[in-house]
Design a protein around this nucleic acid. Sequence first.
DNA 1: GTGCCAATTTATCTTTTGATAATTTAGCAG
DNA 2: CTGCTAAATTATCAAAAGATAAATTGGCAC
Lengths: 230, 230
Amino acid sequence: METSVSAIKNKTKKTASRKRQRLSPDEREALIVDTAIEFFSEHGFEATTRELAQRLGITQPLLYRYFPTKQKLIERVYERIYVRRWQPKWGRLIKNRKRSLTDRLIDFYQEYTDAVYDYVWVRSFLYAGLMGLDINSRYLEIIRTNVLIPICVELRHENDQPSVRKVPISDEEMELAWSMHGMFFYRAVRHFAYGLPIVENLDQVIESDVRLFMKGAPQAQKKIIKRQMA
Amino acid sequence: METSVSAIKNKTKKTASRKRQRLSPDEREALIVDTAIEFFSEHGFEATTRELAQRLGITQPLLYRYFPTKQKLIERVYERIYVRRWQPKWGRLIKNRKRSLTDRLIDFYQEYTDAVYDYVWVRSFLYAGLMGLDINSRYLEIIRTNVLIPICVELRHENDQPSVRKVPISDEEMELAWSMHGMFFYRAVRHFAYGLPIVENLDQVIESDVRLFMKGAPQAQKKIIKRQMA
DNA sequence: GTGCCAATTTATCTTTTGATAATTTAGCAG
DNA sequence: CTGCTAAATTATCAAAAGATAAATTGGCAC
């Protein structure tokens, strides 16, 4: 079903200025989305449809044959950039009780770095949030379900706390998990949004973060649950 | 020199629709800036000059008598937003060795919340970063000097590590301090940039963060310094 | 080769918004 | 009270950018 975009590009971009190229709707759409990802990555989402069309080598109105509004196109791009970048294996990694939670988290956040520590990714994610596009919430839901909640669940399991069925996860306990995530993600913000230099040995720092977290988290969780029961 | 804006407001906003109000340039300018801060806080910097003028009860072209471009007005707003927020007493608070570092950090971050957990502040800070405005670096330097470095220094002091003069603070050690700050600030990002609900008992969560940090930080710091010496 | 039809383009609209020029008038000096 | 000055308004421009309607044409079916 998926059309090979590189193949189409060959078909299209042959020489400088060429005659109108008539593609099948599937091909054209694939080409638009693919180019849009690249284009918006570089210029941000305020960039114009006209410039996008220019890069595509088509006219601007043609975009509107494939996407009713710019917003819809952007949503499509987001979908591709964010949602698809999440690898289901990560969810399994975190839940795998054959290993210590510390090891699992170190592995996860180190691998996750490859997906997230990326100029385009971080910046457009922040932009989307600031602009109020409803893109972040879907992605953050993935994080919630696959990272934060498992952290709480596994942490309880390792430290003999009541299961989440007996004592549901409170907001405060979720915040505990967010703390871990914050240490990790704020580094990316500092680097890609503020332009500060990134630390050299990132893997080392991530490991250090996780160990820091895992050292204090059990006690913190215990306290939270205790307060919750009172 | 500073004009009391609340006084001018009384002067201005008397009844619903009033005749044109002729103010001195100083007064009018103060009113514009003050209102702009409030206005852009709520609607972000993409909001229009017309709407701002409406809130001010003046016409849109009048803005251009006081600021040659919208950009200039925004810069002025930025300046004001960051000028007064950092309180020098916070620097002293963190360095006060009469109290435990844990207590100091809890106090600091709880107080600091009032300055930073603010729609305008967080969003404009992120926007400035993304847009490449050179606003963040100056502010982050304050954070570095008054928060992060003191955290490292005090942490060493409390845990019998070599002084920073003997063993300078490495990037990795700075990252450790940034971890603390990340837990704190990423919450604000989640709330004000992503629009997620903020946890109810924020003070409690901050205290929890600091305790989490202080539980693991000494060991982490020790490791880092050890690696550094090797 | 011919005709068709949908992919694509051309031309154009509309709204938004930053910015300017010309006109009006508030309110103080005298 | 009168006149002047500059504060403020009205009217308007121009550019940008999303979106639409009508005309054009590439390339497949036959």
